[in-house]
């Protein structure tokens, strides 16, 4: 199960006595099990902050976040996370990176390595198991990062602009691969992006956020049939609508 519930969450960043920013203002929302939700909004709207609060890396000043009815207070292996920056441990080989989570849970190295093959196969990098991160391209690094996050068998996968640093082609390929993984693994995915194209291609539900203070402006259900055509008229209509709404937000 991977039901995420956000209740009245606010988060204020205090710089010094006089300056502070309200990054999230009284946000409430629910994500269903196995749902693919994208967060879109102008930069600085607090979408990453919200994701970090759900991961447990940050904590809200007010409000609570629940995963399957249990309050989230610290990071845990039930929530995997993929970062925008390359976060693979450069001193570990690909396979050793993937087994990091299972090893932390006390699983024996041999068993963990066997299990890791499954995840490396899922992202198509089996032949790179002994490589070090410096030998991989950006797209491969993020694939390994996804495999590493999945190796803990999380019920929710949190992704913070994971493909932001990749070139357009690699990005499209990885989006498709992510959808395949999502279909196979049946997990909830919360995906932060600044690309409307990406959100329209991936999401069941797009959460549109407004800037400073970060609020949920609109939740759009994307009921385009899958597999989706990036350039279909319906997708274009939806993209147009979201882009216009974002533009209004930025000009405010």
């Amino acid at each position: 199960m991977g039901k995420v519930k956000v209740v009245n969450v606010s988060r204020r960043f205090i710089k010094d006595k006089d300056t502070s920013t309200l990054a999230l203002d009284n946000i409430s929302m629910e994500v269903d099990d196995k749902e693919f939700v994208c967060f879109v909004g102008p930069s600085g709207c607090g979408k990453t902050t919200l994701l970090r609060i759900i991961s447990g890396l940050d904590s809200p000043d007010e409000g609570e976040v629940y995963l399957d009815g249990i309050k989230i207070e610290s990071p845990g292996p039930d929530r995997g996370m993929v970062f925008q920056e390359y976060s693979l441990f450069p001193w570990k080989s690909v396979a050793d990176n993937v087994i990091f989570g299972p090893r932390m849970r006390g699983i024996k190295k041999k068993d963990a390595l066997e299990e890791a093959e499954k995840y490396l196969e899922l992202v198509g990098l089996q032949q790179f198991r002994h490589s070090f991160p410096y030998e991989l391209s950006g797209g491969m690094k993020q694939r390994v990062a996804i495999a590493r996050a999945l190796a803990n068998e999380p019920s929710v996968l949190l992704m913070d602009e994971p493909f932001g640093a990749l070139d357009a082609q690699t990005r499209n390929i990885l989006q498709q691969e992510l959808l395949d993984i999502w279909k196979k693994k049946h997990i909830t995915i919360l995906f932060v992006t600044h690309s409307v194209d990406e959100a329209v291609f991936l999401a069941d539900k797009i959460v549109l956020m407004s800037a400073r203070p970060g609020k949920i402006k609109e939740v759009i259900n994307v009921d385009l049939p899958r597999p989706r055509e990036r350039t279909s008229p319906e997708a274009n209509v939806l993209r147009d609508r979201i882009l216009k709404s974002l533009l209004k937000e930025q000009n405010k």
């Binding site: 991961s55 447990g56 890396l57 610290s74 990071p75 845990g76 292996p77 929530r79 995997g80 996370m81 970062f83 920056e85 390359y86 976060s87 441990f89 990091f100 989570g101 932390m104 849970r105 590493r148 996050a149 803990n152 949190l158």
Partner: peptide, 17 residues
């Protein structure tokens, strides 16, 4: 910081670890 945070979300939480 990203290595520390990545380790935290993977279940490595105590200072010692």
């Amino acid at each position: 910081r990203v290595y520390v945070e990545a380790a935290k979300v993977l279940g490595c939480n105590t200072d010692r670890e």
